[in-house]
Every structure is written in C-alpha cells, then in structure tokens.
C-alpha cells in the first residue's frame, strides 16, 4: 500500500529557546495525537522529524504514525536552513519508494518547515537540492516577525505567518498541519489537482502569505 511520507523540519536554534521550543514540543504532541484520531492519516501517514540549528539531525527516520515516538527538543545555536533542505532531500531519496513500471510507489512527501529566524548558513546548495526533488505539498511557517519570509517564498508558495511565536499560535499551526494531512472534498473550481495538495483553510492565528 502506498505510504504518505510527512517530513517535519523544525528550527531548534537558540532563538527558539524558552516558550517557543516548549510550544513546539507541545505542538508535536498535539499533532501526533490529532493525527492518531484521523483514519486517513493512521492508514497512510509516516512521519520523520529533522531538526536544524548549528547541526542538522534527523531525529526520527520515517516512521509509521502509530509507532512514532515523540522526542523532546531543546534549542541552541544557529539556523542551518540550507543544511536542512539538503538533508531532507537526501533522506527522502533513501526512504521513499519511488515505484517502478510495475509497482506503485509512495505518495509524494509532504514537507512542513518551521523557522523563526534568518539562516546562518548558505542556503543556495540546499535550495537547489530541494527544488530538484519531488514533493507533494510544501508548507513553510515563519514563526514570529524575525523569520525571513522572502527566502521561505523561494522554497514554496505556501508560506504561513505566525505573528508571534507564542504557544497558541504554534499549537494552531500544528493543528492545521494535522488537518492538511487528511482528505477533503474537491471543490468544483479547483482544477485538476487530485493529489493531497489542497490546503485546508488556516485558523485565525495563521495567515497565508500571498504573493
């Protein structure tokens, strides 16, 4: 059966320490427990968590939702955004079944990226590797006013803004992520999209950046 891979890329740089990282930890709990009550997600979703600060680390490899163990994250150091884009591209290459002429592969992975600041590494190589890979829906979340939204818009057209990095907003983001993973009715006007790439409406705490 086809799997739906979901990559969560989380900024754990020093600026996230304190309330933000605590909220991210709470948000991850919320996300996983919400998804575990979603039949669509329980059937198909596989989660992986990659953190980035000075170093990039795949904290959890692609794991079936039901057996995914939620790690506790701590924050310190810089923001290796370029590094995490390279890393997710290379682990996805290894973890995802691309299928063949006689076997169906996995669904295109969903990517949720959350960052609160400006990258401290060179992003160009990572961005290129990321753009060369095939993704389903990619959502970047600019958590708080310091995040580099211009750069995020080069990664994906789906950029959401959290005005503040407080726990309500971060939890709202994760709740929204959970609803993006399940199926919904297709609107008449919404063209030829059949993949899982139609975004549900964001909650009031989030605003979708239009450009």
């Amino acid at each position: 059966m086809r799997r739906l891979p979901v990559y969560l890329l989380i900024d754990v740089s020093g600026s996230m320490s304190g309330e933000p990282i605590k909220s991210v930890n709470d948000g991850l709990q919320l996300l996983v427990s919400a998804l575990r009550k979603e039949p669509q997600a329980l059937e198909t979703a596989y989660l992986s968590l990659i953190t980035f600060s000075d170093v990039v680390k795949q904290v959890a490899p692609l794991t079936e939702l039901a057996s995914f163990k939620i790690p506790t994250l701590t924050a310190s150091g810089g923001t290796s955004l370029g590094g995490v884009l390279s890393e997710v591209s290379s682990v996805a290459k290894k973890e995802i079944n691309k299928g063949s002429a006689d076997e169906k592969g996995d669904w295109k992975p969903l990517v949720f990226l959350m960052t609160d600041g400006v990258p401290t590494d060179n992003v160009e190589n990572g961005l290129r590797a990321f753009k060369d890979s095939k993704w389903g829906m990619v959502i970047a979340c600019a958590a708080g006013p310091e995040a580099d939204t211009k750069l995020l818009q080069r990664i994906t057209e789906n950029v959401v803004l959290l005005d503040t990095c407080d726990s309500d907003s971060i939890k709202a983001f994760f709740r929204w992520v959970s609803s993006s993973v399940s199926v919904s009715s297709k609107k008449v006007e919404s063209g030829a999209q059949l993949d899982n790439n139609e975004l549900p409406p964001p909650p009031p705490e989030l605003s979708l950046l239009k450009f």
Binding site: S100, K104, G105
Partner: peptide, 14 residues
C-alpha cells in the same frame, strides 16, 4: 489495484 499507469503519483491517480 496494482496497475501502474504513470510513476507520477498525480497522473497515476487521475
């Protein structure tokens, strides 16, 4: 079923 029409998941689905 298991029939593959395309390795692009979206085209396959359609």
């Amino acid at each position: 079923g298991s029939k593959v029409h395309s390795q692009d998941t979206e085209i396959q689905e359609a």
